[in-house]
């Protein structure tokens, strides 16, 4: 048996909280929402999490997602006002020192590549943009990718390679890569299997698998089969192939809005429109290409309304952050007994 214990309930936002993101060192948590602000939470001397900093005046509409740069010195914010804000602390205080424009309407997601040199964004305008960080504080658009046919919900980078994944209202998942001969970014893979909007995606630690969650109430696990793998279909190009190796249905009763794959414990957590948080673990298997996953923990009524985002702490094992339409951010400690 295992359980999820409440560590603290953090109140500071007005209205719906859309996203939570941990600093790479795990000691700061950022949250954002419809009140157009970013809250930065940290532990005080007594060990309680407090809202130390509230960033305002960067955006004129809802802030949908925030992301820390891998160095931890920058925060990027995606807003319904069609812009991306880049915040830093160079003046001693957090300030929005760059605004990236180009998307035609709401920016839904932003993500920093692991090397810190690339930033990706996506929008309701159906496009995915790749931004290159040329010089200090100089952001150049390296690609505008129009592969999706609908609203793009989330972008995520592969943890070790410059591969970008995006998921969309068009029900598909796409992977993008840069062609190193002509520096053109192209869509290398399109994966279809979900029956409705794909809301989020999370890679495992080495990037050999990822999980996707959807409005179709399922969680799917995908695995990469490289060229010399006998399981890979013959006749394909020398590209590796991603395949859906497991579909978890029947666990979630409404749309699943977010998924986080812990790089310390390998556990997968989901945030759902039925107010619950669920944790999944790979079970023992015989065939490595057909693993099964079991739900090892469910916290019904984790929040009073939809759970919009879930995120494992990158340093402290089992520490989980979540946020909800109910206006709160919650911290949890997962314990496997």
């Amino acid at each position: 048996m295992s359980k999820l214990e409440t560590v603290q309930c953090l109140k500071g936002h007005e209205g719906r909280v859309w996203n939570v993101a941990w600093h790479p060192k795990g000691n700061l948590l950022a949250s954002c929402g419809e009140d157009k602000t970013i809250c930065i939470w940290s532990k005080d001397a007594l060990g309680k999490w407090q809202n130390k900093t509230k960033l305002t005046e960067g955006h004129s509409r809802t802030i949908r997602e925030i992301g820390w740069s891998p160095c931890g010195n920058y925060i990027a914010s995606a807003s319904f006002d069609a812009t991306i804000g880049i915040w830093d602390k160079k003046s001693g205080e957090w300030e929005c020192n760059a605004t990236l424009e180009g998307h035609e309407n709401e920016v839904k997601s932003i993500a920093w590549a692991n090397n810190g040199q690339l930033l990706a964004s996506c929008s309701r305008d159906k496009s995915v943009w790749v931004w290159e960080i040329a010089d200090e504080d100089e952001y150049e658009c390296a690609a505008v990718l129009n592969a999706h046919t609908q609203d793009v919900k989330k972008v995520k980078w592969h943890p070790t390679q410059d591969i970008l994944a995006s998921v969309s209202y068009d029900n598909s998942i796409k992977l993008f890569k840069e062609d190193l001969t002509d520096h053109d970014w192209t869509c290398s893979t399109t994966l279809t299997s979900h029956d409705s909007t794909v809301w989020s995606l999370a890679f495992n630690k080495n990037g050999s698998k990822f999980a996707t969650v959807s409005d179709d109430k399922t969680l799917k696990i995908w695995k990469e089969f490289n060229c010399n793998d006998p399981e890979k279909n013959k006749g394909d190009s020398n590209e590796s192939a991603w395949k859906n190796i497991c579909t978890l249905s029947g666990y979630h009763s409404r749309a699943i809005y977010d998924v986080s794959w812990c790089h310390l414990s390998d556990l997968i957590v989901t945030g759902c429109g039925d107010d619950a948080i669920r944790i999944f673990k790979e079970s023992d298997y015989i065939n490595k290409n057909e693993p099964s996953y079991e739900m090892i923990c469910v916290c019904e009524k984790a929040h009073n309304q939809d759970v919009n985002s879930v995120s494992w702490n990158p340093v402290i094992q089992g520490l989980l952050a979540s946020c909800s339409d109910d206006g709160t951010v919650k911290l949890w400690q997962f314990k496997e007994l």
Partner: peptide, 15 residues
């Protein structure tokens, strides 16, 4: 139906 039940798009529309 898909659009009416996508709460993110509803939220954006109501802004």
């Amino acid at each position: 139906n898909k659009q009416l039940n996508d709460k993110e798009r509803v939220a954006a529309a109501l802004e």
